[in-house]
């Protein structure tokens, strides 16, 4: 049982950077990135491929982050020129195209078969192979990432992000190169997502294209929508809440015939929560006058 709680903790530690990245983009800068999962996937694949070909974990980690960042930089250049929902949809398209590449370029990714047997990480010779070690190792990274995000949001950079979120035109009117700041935000969000992706690959030890669908982006979106209002702490708490709910369902003593209904019913519930929160917060949420806007 302790093991299973540890498992849930570790999954949370994987999802927290992923969700924090989206929070930075949506909550702080107003970039509705519906293709967030693409970067999670790119780094997961990169790290899986590098380590299965003998590159040590830490090297693969940094190479994968760099690669995801490079993709964000390249894709951001054209797509960041789009606003609002168009930006979101174009990123969604990008994510789906990436997934098709994972699926079809079998010579590289093994296609739908996925990559099994991804090695466990090791940290300068210390193997990370037990659940407590995973929890501590990933936990340290998560704390560092959260610390970084906290500082960014309180920094002058963070205030520019908020200004862009609240009113891009006035932000550019006071002489801010909004494109560059939006790109910085996308890049930071991407690096966080990429960290989660690497964690995912090396913890689960198996990845396949079906792990990187719109559903994962929706999961992060749900977390941000639930917790984003209270900033970073809210996002982290919301992650524990959502993941705990999701993983905990396995433990309910449900009859077997009911088993196949769990996953879709859980997704139905998530959908409902998204709708209800939007309905409830219609006035105050992610607009001017949000608590964060003054921060």
């Amino acid at each position: 049982m302790t093991n299973y709680l540890l498992h849930i903790l570790i999954v949370c530690e994987i999802i927290i950077p992923f969700a924090l990245g989206l929070q930075l983009e949506i909550g702080e800068t107003g970039l509705y990135n519906f293709g967030h999962v693409a970067f999670f996937g790119i780094s997961a694949y990169a790290s899986a491929l590098l380590t299965t070909h003998g590159i040590p974990f830490m090297g693969a980690l940094f190479a994968s982050l760099a690669l995801a960042g490079l993709f964000a930089w390249g894709v951001g250049y054209p797509i960041l020129r789009l606003r609002g929902d168009y930006f979101g949809l174009a990123m969604l398209g990008f994510a789906e195209i990436m997934r098709k590449i994972f699926l079809n370029e079998s010579w590289l990714t093994r296609g739908p078969m996925g990559i099994p047997g991804i090695p466990r990480p090791s940290f300068f010779g210390v193997p990370i192979h037990t659940l407590p070690r995973f929890a501590i190792f990933y936990g340290l990274f998560v704390i560092a990432a959260a610390f970084a995000v906290y500082h960014v949001t309180r920094s002058p950079l963070g205030r520019v992000f908020h200004a862009i979120r609240d009113d891009e035109y006035s932000a550019s009117a006071v002489g801010k190169d909004t494109f560059r700041f939006r790109r910085t935000s996308l890049l930071m969000g991407t690096l966080l997502a990429a960290l989660g992706g690497v964690f995912w690959a090396h913890y689960i030890t198996f990845i396949s294209p079906s792990d990187f669908t719109l559903n994962e982006t929706i999961l992060a979106l749900l977390i941000v929508v639930i917790g984003g209002r209270w900033g970073m702490a809210g996002t982290i708490l919301a992650t524990f809440f959502v993941i705990g709910f999701q993983e905990g369902l396995r433990f309910l003593p449900l009859p077997e015939s009911f088993g196949r209904l769990i996953a879709p019913m859980q997704q139905m519930f998530f959908g409902l929560v998204l709708v209800l929160i939007v309905l409830k917060r219609e006035k105050s949420w992610f607009h001017k006058g949000d608590r964060l806007a003054q921060g």
Partner: peptide
């Protein structure tokens, strides 16, 4: 594969 992995993990860990 993903759900099989999760299921095997539960059988081993729990």
């Amino acid at each position: 594969a993903k759900d099989s992995v999760a299921a095997v993990r539960k059988l081993i860990d729990v």
